[in-house]
């Protein structure tokens, strides 16, 4: 094996046989870092294809050549294609359309939607925005009281109609209320739902099509394994299929929570971005309002290749 890692230049160009064991090793590394198995496979395959046939520069082992190519590929993948900053867009909508900017958070059960929504509220307030929170999880026990507590701490208005009501309607009323009292942003909390629970996914699509939010953030936890891929693709597919409008609104960004619980196993970030092509807008790094951060691509890439 060692000869593979240590092979120097001057010899032949990189062949499939040289690459295979090295690629396998990096694949295992990525899976160990919690990248979904089929995504780890696709990434190393394309990295393999990109270096195959190339000549090794002097004094470079196969391993370090592959590492370099993988580093580049991951950096390209994780670098947001467009700005993740929402503030400018909020100001634009407020000024030109004279209405509140509407953000919906969605995701599976227990990932941190409501907490992230409260943190986002705090972030927006720090930037001078006036916010209203809409309690559109009308199902889970204690969901409304959870937001009441946050709204009281953050000193913002909470719009709610208790439990059992149609979430889409509650959201609509909340936006109307937000417009009435002149807020800049309405943050809409939704109930957690399993991605293949069709009635619940239809209800989410309805909430979106009725309210046409400016942003839909998918909240996923950094702890999630291979299911990340299915969660995101199924949420997007449900939004696509069930909105019944010509231009359905899809997921615009990801909030990656519980980043403080995974040490360097940051692979869920790769799985999520790879699946949607959407950027990570914020990471959650704890349970207080201050624990919402932007994550740098190089931090993620270095953790993955460590």
């Amino acid at each position: 094996m060692l000869s593979f890692w240590k092979r120097l230049t001057g010899q032949s160009s990189l062949s499939k046989e040289d690459l295979e064991p090295v690629l396998q090793q990096f694949k295992t590394t990525l899976i160990g870092k919690n990248v979904a198995q089929n995504i780890a496979e696709k990434i190393v395959q394309s990295v393999g294809a990109s270096v195959e046939g190339k000549r090794l520069e002097s004094m470079k082992s196969v391993k370090s050549a592959v590492r370099e190519a993988l580093h580049d590929a991951l950096t390209r993948l994780l670098t947001p294609k467009q700005s993740t900053e929402v503030l400018a867009d909020i100001e634009k909508v407020n000024a030109i359309e004279r209405r509140p900017f509407v953000i919906v958070v969605c995701g599976v059960n227990g990932v941190g939607k409501s907490t992230s929504l409260a943190k986002t509220c705090f972030y927006l307030q720090k930037h001078g925005k006036k916010v209203l929170i809409a309690a559109c999880d009308t199902f889970r026990a204690g969901a409304v009281e959870q937001l009441k507590t946050h709204a009281a701490c953050l000193n913002v208005e909470l719009y709610h109609q208790g439990y059992g009501k149609d979430a889409a309607t509650v959201a609509k009323e909340a936006v109307r209320r937000g417009t009435e009292i002149g807020v800049d942003v309405v943050l809409v909390d939704t109930a957690g739902r399993m991605q293949h629970n069709e009635p619940l996914m239809r209800a989410l699509a309805k909430l979106v099509s009725v309210n046409q939010p400016d942003r839909i953030f998918f909240v996923g936890e950094a702890l999630v394994g291979n299911d990340a891929v299915d969660q995101l693709s199924s949420f997007n597919k449900a939004l696509m299929d069930f909105q019944k409008v010509p231009n359905p609104r899809l997921i615009d960004g990801i909030i990656l929570t519980k980043f403080d619980t995974i040490d360097d196993k940051v692979g869920a970030a790769v799985s999520m971005v790879y699946t949607t092509g959407q950027p990570i807008v914020f990471v959650g790094v704890g349970q207080t309002y201050y624990d919402l951060r932007k994550v740098s691509t190089s931090v993620l890439v270095n953790a993955l290749l460590r």
């Binding site: 009281e145 959870q146 349970q287």
Partner: peptide
């Protein structure tokens, strides 16, 4: 005693 709404959540479930 930490999570917002934790007691209400348990209470509502228990009551049900």
């Amino acid at each position: 005693t930490f999570r917002a709404g934790a007691f209400d959540q348990l209470k509502q479930n228990a009551t049900k």
